[in-house]
Design a protein around this nucleic acid. Structure first.
Length: 678
DNA sequence: GCTGATGCGTC
DNA sequence: GTCGGAC
DNA sequence: GTCCGACGACGCATCAGC
């Protein structure tokens, strides 16, 4: 184990604190001591959550801060919760790993939810420990909640190196890579080495050096906070130290955790339901007396509990926090987590659908332009509208709730100039040229998360906000209002600038609108239910997105990569080329989706004999097979030799009727890229 | 100071 | 983002 | 319907290494 100076210092502090506080050493559960001493005290204190250590702003709201009161980005509602961390037994990382194994092995949804609920209950029995938030996030492969700017900055490469080091002097990064190719999954690779488990630091506390969930969490938070010169090797050291203390099952979980790929078959939906099941069961039971199958009160209560958890997640986007809230404050506490200006909400999402689908489902359809940009949410409390307090300058959040305000001064100015009441707006930021015409999505990317030279780039690529929804206006929360009403209010708060909507009740009219949108250079149209509420985070049927049917290209397979996970035994990706004369092929991208298991197996078998060379993950394949590949758009590419790449490539079929010479040519691709018409 | 590798987040 | 598979 | 995982391209930020 490597203990950095700061950690060591804190360890000592921690110990002094314990003694200084007059904690009785006699008769104290030995586990209470084993934690701060044996494992280095990494997780035994609240300092890791010190807001001062954060890289960026963490704009949040106080509990129940509904209405127009701005929430200062500087406040941190987590502080209180973590300040009271108890020094009580912690869940061992091995125990978590063991339960994770069982989860991964469980195929049935309902049983999975129960297992997760059990795990949450074990991690956070009320008043016993505070592993609940951590375990909840870990289950989803996260150390930090989604709405938190911190990142580990540890990816596959660094992880492999750390594993190699922990595996011993005879193991190099290349060996790890080889095993990865074999196993198809980093967790299995990590579990395959003997890292020494708990033997390493047996000197401490009679061999009690087992990793705890809290220790892993704290170590990863330390690691995330590191930056600057030498940080990469320090991160590698830290990770190495952790692996060194891992039994195989723990190593597997740790590797997956740092890469955010838990592969437990447990996602957000499962955790959401499990939180309700674990901590709101009493609420359900209270309501549920007798059962009549039509409207079973037990079921209704369960739905209510799940709904309360869901709503709290929509506004906080922090699974750990919501789990704690559900446990400690129940339904009432969850329901108190309302909308707050200054705290981003999950964005409402759309499914694919056609004009006919929309008309059939909604009758009258709200038709909007689908812009090819980046989704943003704008929160603003004008100085003049702040009740007594200060206003909140416009804050702009990405779909993932990252604060992107600084990169988008146009949006800030635009909103400041027009809006005079507190608002939460939903919209899309698009890149535009000097005439205001839309530019390709790639141009948006050049601006979106930029930190440097924002003003200079502004001259080159302009941005424009198209606001299309309003979640809060002048003290009123609008989530439950129908789209129609929300749009009316949007027009009220942004008089000359709200994105336009037109209403249509037949598919032909919608198609006309779609053609007009495409003609103007946009991506397609959104078809929305005018009577639907705004359901954050939901990809339901109330919003449909309609884009032109995919175009296809016949391309030659010139390479492949081995798959991971369920595709470990197969090629998972195919490198594509188009004819560039003289039996040469210029690469134009890779395709990996759209293949059924069967098609993938067939292609793998068929192409294996044509493998020319294998270099790490890269496999070169003799041009032999032609694939029909669908795509959304042809982009210019700095990566591929053709100079072009396909956006959203997907496998459509094998063109057995075509030889490689009949595949599409670079010439044709260039023509298609030119103006979309041949 | 520059370049390439790596990681992250947008679609 | 897209898509297939499992439930 | 919903959830989950196995994957695509791009551009910016950051760090290592020259």
């Amino acid at each position: 184990m490597v203990v950095e100076g700061a950690v060591a210092e804190r360890l000592l502090d921690d110990f002094r604190l314990l003694l200084g506080a007059g904690v009785e050493l006699v008769g104290v559960d030995r586990e209470r001591l084993a934690d701060p001493v044996g494992e280095g005290g990494l997780g035994a204190h609240g300092t890791v959550d010190d807001p001062g250590r954060q890289k960026g702003l963490r704009p949040t709201g106080g509990v129940g801060a509904v209405g127009t009161r701005p929430v200062r980005p500087e406040t941190d509602p987590y502080r209180g919760a973590f300040a009271e961390r108890s020094r009580t037994p912690r869940m061992e990382f091995a125990a978590f790993a063991e339960r994770a194994e069982r989860l991964a092995a469980e195929p049935a949804d309902i049983e999975t939810t129960r297992l997760v609920a059990d795990l949450l209950a074990a991690a956070g029995g009320r008043g016993k420990s505070d592993d609940l938030a951590t375990v909840t996030r870990f289950l989803l492969g996260r150390v930090f909640p989604a709405h938190d700017t911190r990142t580990l900055d540890v990816g596959p490469a660094l992880c492999r190196e750390a594993i190699a080091r922990a595996a011993g002097p005879n193991v190099g990064a290349a060996d790890v890579e080889e095993r990865l190719a074999e196993a198809g999954e980093i967790g299995a690779v990590a579990a395959g080495f003997d890292f020494g488990g708990q033997r390493g630091l047996a000197a401490f506390g009679e061999g009690r050096d087992r990793l705890t969930v809290a220790a892993v969490d704290a170590a990863l938070r330390e690691l995330a906070a590191d930056a600057g010169d030498g940080s990469e090797s320090r991160k590698r050291d830290a990770l190495f130290g952790l692996f060194n203390r891992c039994e195989p099952a723990e190593a597997k979980l740790l590797a997956r955790l740092v890469l955010g790929e838990m592969r437990l078959g447990v996602g957000e939906g499962t955790v959401r339901d499990a939180i309700a099941e674990a901590f709101l069961a009493e609420a359900s039971a209270d309501d549920g007396k007798e059962g009549n199958d039509g409207d079973d009160p037990t079921l209704r209560a369960r739905d209510e509990a799940a709904a309360a958890v869901e709503r709290a997640l929509q506004v906080t986007n922090d699974y750990g926090r919501v789990a704690v809230l559900a446990r400690d404050e129940g339904l009432a506490g969850l329901r108190a987590e309302g909308l707050a200006v200054g705290r981003p909400v999950q964005a409402m999402l759309a499914q694919a659908g056609t004009a006919t689908d929309a008309v059939e489902a909604f009758g009258e359809v709200a038709v909007e332009t689908k812009f090819d940009g980046a989704r943003v949410q704008v929160h603003y409390v004008p100085e003049s509208a702040a009740e007594g307090g200060e206003g909140l300058g416009p804050r702009v959040y990405s779909r993932n709730m990252d604060d992107v305000t600084d990169a988008l001064p146009e949006v800030v100015e635009y909103v400041e100039a027009r809006v005079s009441v507190p608002v939460i707006l939903d919209g899309e930021v698009v890149a535009v040229d000097d005439d205001g015409d839309p530019l390709p999505f790639q141009e948006v990317l050049r601006r979106f998360r930029r930190k440097h030279d924002v003003d200079r780039m502004r001259e080159e690529v302009g941005l424009r906000l198209h606001a299309f929804d309003c979640l809060h206006a002048d003290g009123e929360d609008l989530l439950d209002e129908p789209l129609r009403a929300r749009h009316d209010l949007l027009v009220d708060v942004l008089p000359d600038a709200a994105a336009s909507v037109e209403f249509a009740d037949d598919p032909e009219a919608i198609e006309v609108a779609e053609a007009a949108a495409l003609d103007a250079g946009h991506e397609g149209v959104m078809l929305k239910n005018p009577d639907a509420a705004y359901t954050p985070g939901d990809r339901g049927r109330d919003w449909l997105k309609r884009k032109p049917d995919v175009e296809t290209l016949d391309a030659v397979v010139v390479g492949a990569e081995w798959g991971e996970g369920r595709r470990a035994e197969l090629f998972g990706t195919f490198l594509l080329g188009v004819g560039a004369g003289d039996d040469e092929f210029a690469t134009i991208g890779k395709v990996a989706t759209g293949l059924t298991d069967e098609a993938l197996a067939d292609l793998t078998e068929r192409l294996k004999p044509h493998v020319v060379s294998e270099d790490g993950t890269e496999i070169e394949i003799r041009p032999e097979a032609v694939l029909e590949v669908g795509y959304e758009e042809i982009q210019t590419s700095p990566t591929y030799s053709s100079g072009y790449a396909l956006r959203f490539p997907r496998f459509v079929g094998v063109r057995d009727d075509k030889s490689v010479g009949d595949a599409d040519s670079l010439e044709r691709v260039a023509r298609l890229a030119g103006d979309g018409a041949e």
